[in-house]
Structure formats: C-alpha cells, structure tokens
Design a protein around this nucleic acid. Structure first.
Length: 382
DNA sequence: AAGACTCACAACCGCCACTCC
DNA sequence: CGGAGTGGCGGTTGTGAGTCT
C-alpha cells in the first residue's frame, strides 16, 4: 500500500533538538496536550515532523521519566525480562518505572549486551556460549528464535490457565503425583529414562507448551508431539492465551524498580495472596513445585535434550539448561558491581558457565518468576 | 597537540497494527 | 470491507564527548 509520509520531509529540521525547540514543545503540550502529533508541530511552531516531536516527548521531555545511571536492580530487571521477552523493549519498559523503551534499548545495546558477552553468555539466547547448540550448524540464532524464553513465558502462562481449567478434573491425581515426584529416587529414575516418568502430564505440558506456545486448547502431547517451530513472538500468544485476568500482581507486591528477592523459598509465599482463587493458587504451587523439581533435574536430564531435539522441537526442550551458567554468572556479577563492565573487565569473562550450582539456579529461576508474578496486572506481558 | 578511535546516547527510519471513515 | 491516517515499536544511524596513540 502506498503511503504518504508522516509529514512533509522538505523544510523540516532534523537532528538534535535545541533547548528552544524543547521549550516550545513542552509549553505546547502542557497547555494543550499533544493531540494529533501530525498537527502538533505547526500548532507549536516547530519545524519538525510530528513523529520527531512524539519521540522527543516520550523519550526525553516527558516529566515522568527518570534519567541517569541505571541501578543494579534495574539492570537485573532488564536482563531477566529480556530473557523472558526478547527485544520487546516497550514491554520491558513497563516493568521499569520511569524508564523509556529507547533508554532501555540503548542501555542494553551499549552495556548489558557487552557484559553478558564478556561473561560468556550469548545475549540473544541467554545461554552460555560454547553451548553444544551453538556449535551445530551455526544455528544458534535460529535456535534462539525457537527456544527463546518468550516461549517459556507463554508456556508458563498457558500452563497456568490449563491448570486452572483442569483442576476440578484432576485435583486428586495431581496431588498424588506431586507427592510422587517429590521423591528424589524417582527423580533420578526420571532422569535416567527418556520415557515419561510419573507425573509428567504437567511436566509434558510445560515442555510441550514451551516448545509450542501457540497451540490452542487440546491435549498437550508433550514429548513427541506435533511441535511447530514457534517463531518467538509474544504478539501472537498475547492474543491467543486464554489467561484469566485475575492479575496475580494485583495481590502481590509490585515491581518497584525491579526489586528482586534472592531467597527462593520466600517466593512461594507470594502465592498465599491468591486467596480469591484458591484452586489457582494450589495449581500454581503445584506447578512451581514441579518447576523446582525440573530445575533440580536439569543436569541429569541434559543427555536427553539434544541440539537436534531442540531444533526440531520434539518436546525435549532444555528449558533449564540455558539457565546453567547464566544464572551463576548473572547473580555473581550483578551482586558484585565491581565485576561488571563498569570497570571494563569481568572476572568471569570467557567462562562457559559453572557446573551446577543448584541453589543459584533455583534462585535465578525464582527471580524470574518473582518478577513475572509481581508484574502489574495490566502489563503487556499478560 | 592533534588525529584516530571508541563509546554512549539521541534521533531517525521503516514497518506494523490499530482505528476511523 | 478496504483504504488511509496515525501511533507505536524495534533496528539502525548519526553525532558529540571522551580516550588513546
């Protein structure tokens, strides 16, 4: 479709804004509101296109934006939400009060991306570099699209909804299975056996959905299911997800600058607040228990999650593998500003990830869940 | 001291989705 | 229903400041 440009290109000023222009724009918007951005420049006496005015306002002049150095917590929030959302800067920005998407994007590109790279972590996949996957067919980027945490997040959400729907039918069953899964012995058995062990209906749902978040309804087939290649887009799942709008965050603490707890166990207490939806709460507890169990199983199950299975999306998705190393590095570095690139050097530069600090892995996992759960209910995430 | 280089950030561009007519 | 207008988003570029040689 042929489109007219948003504004006449001829005669319009480009480049950096002058204080005078800022003042004009500010004064006009304060008095009249921005109204139509297209019409604004003429009314405000600016030789700029409306788009430029809008950008200047939203990224710089708006009174409710914070400027200056990002705090450590903000950095952590960005990294963790980037792991969840990818380059969806506007969505990430909603979790960082007073920060603009442009600012976050710039900060990511100029600071955080480099820092992760130095730490030996692929900033695209959030996986340790040198990961087997990265070495196969040079498809790490494609794999990133396939396996991005976006899918993980959508899977989480859809699994939650599914859990609610199924709760009445399967409450007893799940309760029994959870008890079974809690057994370390069976966990080991599960790890040693490719065939789905006990209680894997939810587990499979998790894995399968994570691999194919766009599947709507129906029974989760999990391993071996018909998994298309999801192409890393939240736009799609946002509209497809049958998530009840109960807004977990409404009853939980707000993000508050990305405050991240480090005590994993405490995170479960948040679900105590879901008093209006006891079944939902119960299911969330169950699923979270499973997640923790899965997390613990990560290393022993690695052998079954091959790069091939990753690419083909056959259900064996190393959901937790990517956390390995990343969480360790991230937490170690984020808790130690001196090791960040603020001094230009990372102590962990070039590392390929530590080998199995379960607790930190769990903490990282909880951090992300905590962030998600504490997100505003009107977040575009949901 | 000056040119080359790097870095950080503001701003631009093109595309897309939504809304209105 | 389809086209036009508009705003929003993410990728990319431009530019100025700082650092290095």
């Amino acid at each position: 479709m042929a489109r007219s440009p948003c504004c006449e290109k001829v005669g319009l000023k480009k480049g950096p804004w002058t204080p005078e222009e800022d003042q004009k724009l500010l004064a006009y918007i304060e008095e009249h509101g921005h109204g139509s951005w297209r019409a604004l420049p003429a009314k405000a006496g600016l030789q700029r296109c409306g788009k430029s005015c809008r950008l200047r306002w939203t990224n710089y002049l708006r009174p409710d934006i914070k400027r200056g150095k990002f705090s450590l917590q903000e950095e952590q929030t960005i990294i963790q939400f980037h792991a969840l959302l990818g380059n969806r800067w506007s969505a990430i920005a909603t979790h960082l009060p007073k920060r603009t998407d442009n600012e976050i994007k710039n900060y990511w590109n100029t600071h955080l991306k480099k820092r992760l790279t130095k730490m030996g972590i692929d900033p695209v996949t959030h996986k340790p570099k040198g990961d087997t996957l990265s070495l196969v067919d040079g498809q790490s980027k494609n794999a990133a699209n396939l396996s991005h945490i976006t899918q993980w997040e959508s899977a989480r959400l859809e699994a939650e909804a599914r859990l609610v729907r199924e709760s009445k039918l399967r409450a007893n069953s799940v309760q029994h299975q959870l008890g079974t899964l809690a057994s370390a012995e069976l966990l080991n058995k599960a790890a040693a056996t490719p065939a789905p062990p006990l209680c894997l209906d939810v587990l499979k749902a998790w894995q399968g959905l994570w691999s194919n978040p766009l599947r709507k309804g129906g029974v989760i087939t999990g391993i071996g299911g018909d998994l298309e290649s999801p192409t890393s887009t939240l736009t799609t799942y946002e509209t497809a997800l049958p998530i009840p709008t109960i807004g977990i965050g409404e009853n939980l603490s707000t993000c508050e600058g990305g405050n991240v707890k480090k005590e994993g166990e405490e995170d479960w207490k948040n679900f105590e607040n879901l008093t209006h939806f006891p079944e939902y709460k119960e299911r969330m507890e169950n699923s979270m228990t499973l997640i923790t169990s899965l997390n613990d199983m990560t290393f022993s199950m690695e052998g079954h999650w091959t790069p091939e299975s990753m690419r083909t999306g056959n259900g064996h998705v190393p959901v937790f593998n990517f956390m390995e190393g990343f969480s360790d590095h991230l937490l170690a570095n984020s808790n130690n500003p001196n090791s960040s690139d603020s001094d230009g050097h990372s102590d962990n530069a070039g590392g390929s990830g530590s080998h199995g600090d379960y607790e930190e892995n769990k903490n990282y996992w909880n951090d992300i869940l905590n962030l998600v759960n504490s997100s505003p209910s009107d977040s575009p995430l949901f």
